[in-house]
């Protein structure tokens, strides 16, 4: 009501076109809106610089056919894994070896998390046919070692199952890493391998997507 009176007053003293008033207001609002939008956009543009830049380096290349597998940790780190090493590992509490691929150009591809691989010498008779198909005749078997749950390295061994220490995920290595316990959403992919000159060599690509499933 008071508003109405004020407007009426306004008209008496300034016989200005009310249309012009509204237009001026609209232009101001549009200007403020555009400025705010530009400010937000430029902030996002600058903020995008926080997203890390992906660098292409040989040590970040994914595992490829023809790579050999080398020790990822321990005193023999970066040395090629031999059948003898795998036989020795069988006697240990943890009967497998965590490995990285090494390219024919002698680059250990350790800077890509999903290149973390577990390799084990297992009894071929205990393997399912699909599993055996991608293992070497000697029983050398390899999987991505990055847990499908939250990306830990599956590094433990308990009651003949492969155990992730972070949230208790369990994999059956004889059956294409079928999940047999814990909150893991999917099996880790198998990596086809063969043995050449006593060394473990990659014979094919991962049979699925390696890395945490998020």
């Amino acid at each position: 009501m008071a508003d109405h009176e004020a407007t009426a007053h306004h008209h008496e003293h300034h016989p200005e076109d009310p249309q012009a008033h509204a237009t001026r207001r609209a232009i101001l609002q549009a200007a403020i809106g555009v400025s705010a939008g530009a400010a937000v956009l430029s902030t996002l543009w600058v903020g995008a610089g926080l997203v890390p830049r992906e660098e292409k380096v040989p040590s970040k290349e994914p595992v490829a056919v023809g790579d050999t597998l080398v020790f990822a940790t321990g005193p023999k780190a970066d040395q090629e894994i031999t059948l003898d090493d795998l036989r020795a590992a069988q006697q240990e509490k943890i009967p497998f070896i965590i490995a990285f691929p090494k390219s024919p150009e002698n680059v250990v591809k350790k800077d890509l998390i999903t290149n973390t691989i577990m390799v084990i010498l297992a009894d071929p008779n205990k393997m399912s046919p699909e599993t055996r198909q991608y293992a070497s005749p000697e029983g050398v078997l390899a999987y991505s070692a990055v847990c499908k749950h939250l990306g830990c390295t599956v590094s433990q061994w308990q009651n003949d199952t492969w155990l992730c220490p972070c949230h208790g995920g369990r994999y059956d290595i004889y059956n294409q890493a079928k999940v047999v316990g814990g909150p893991v959403p999917a099996p880790v992919p198998q990596l086809p391998v063969k043995v050449e000159g006593g060394k473990v060599v990659v014979a094919g690509e991962f049979l699925g997507e390696p890395g945490a499933d998020v």
């Binding site: 990822a72 940790t73 965590i98 990285f100 350790k110 973390t116 070692a145 830990c152 390295t153 599956v154 590094s155 433990q156 992730c164 220490p165 972070c166």
Partner: peptide, 8 residues
């Protein structure tokens, strides 16, 4: 840090 995961 190594490629191995300790029980955490």
């Amino acid at each position: 840090p190594t490629a191995n995961t300790p029980p955490v």
